[in-house]
Design a protein around this nucleic acid. Structure first.
Lengths: 174, 174
DNA sequence: ATTGTTGCAAAGAGTTTGCAATGCT
DNA sequence: AGCATTGCAAACTCTTTGCAACAAT
């Protein structure tokens, strides 16, 4: 029922002008560099559309659905298309700059990768807000579980669903 | 972009003939009882198709995608339709007899609910096999995390992706 | 006779893709 | 000029739904 074929392209690098078109914050500059490196590897070209999406995505540190990102970009570029957003996000994921998460049956949510710093999520069922957390103890226990079943871990997803502080307060005000 | 409306029906109970049509194993009989109770609450009628799906689903203790279940049932009932499988599974979920899980970007997988016994999953990326696990320590730490962020937990999903023992062995044989 | 269930086809929702036009180098 | 990127529409996949025919009570 499924049939997917992926073709990977390889080609040479080229000069960059990203910095002319994006106002990346200093601390985010390293991350953009990675995009550039990735671009070089793949023979990608500079494009304003992509720059806009990436800039937005990188500077606003949040979890975006494609739809949200599309709507944000559309405010400044009314001609942007869903395809481009999808394609750019996939590019970022392929470059290792972005992660995708599937929270329950929700649509895919994309987030900027924080240099190696793995984390998991608290997902508010009321407002959709996402809180990141890390817990060394949980990570350690995961390894114990894997060992018990002779399982080689390649990744994990851990989501806690519930009601965030803010939404609890909203409720109690009534 | 989304719009969903759910209408819940209520009506009176009725006699059952499920046991005439299903060969539920003794230890699973209690679980079927729950379906019957649920049926009574909702004014559902008995149906062979549904019985077949439920029997299969309950007796074979696994994680099924709709597609897998559809194919299995089709072997004995070539006229079964996807709609019926979808509808029956949703019924089971509504009754609290089945759970849905979304592993990564995979399709929904349904599993029989084991009486209150919550568990999480190791998901093999090679063969799709699913191993269930529980770990009290992880549960406890989850509560700590929730407390830290003033978050009220209503559920969680915890999946560890990787390679199962069997697939590791397959690989090393070559 | 009444009401629930089924299969079918069609509609939705999210995502991907082919292609001609456009943009970058 | 040569090749990557874009927007559009169409295709695709998974899931839900309207409806007429059928089955259970």
């Amino acid at each position: 029922m499924k049939m997917k074929v992926k073709v990977k392209k390889e080609s040479n690098g080229c000069q960059s002008r990203w910095s002319n078109y994006t106002s990346i914050s200093p601390k985010k500059e390293k991350e953009l560099d990675e995009v550039l490196k990735c671009r070089a590897k793949r023979g990608l070209k500079f494009s304003k559309k992509r720059a806009a999406i990436i800039e937005y995505f990188i500077n606003v540190d949040r979890h975006y659905t494609v739809e949200q990102l599309y709507n944000e970009i559309k405010r400044t570029d009314s001609k942007i298309s869903y395809s481009t957003v999808y394609r750019t996000l996939r590019l970022l994921v392929d470059c290792g700059m972005a992660n995708v998460h599937h929270f329950g049956k929700e649509n895919a949510k994309f987030e900027v990768v924080h240099k190696e710093q793995h984390h998991d999520h608290l997902v508010c069922e009321k407002c959709g807000r996402i809180i990141e957390f890390t817990h060394e103890g949980i990570e350690k226990f995961q390894n114990d579980v894997a060992k018990k079943y002779d399982f080689v871990i390649r990744g994990h997803e851990h989501q806690i669903f519930g009601i965030c502080k803010r939404c609890q307060q909203k409720k109690s005000r009534r």
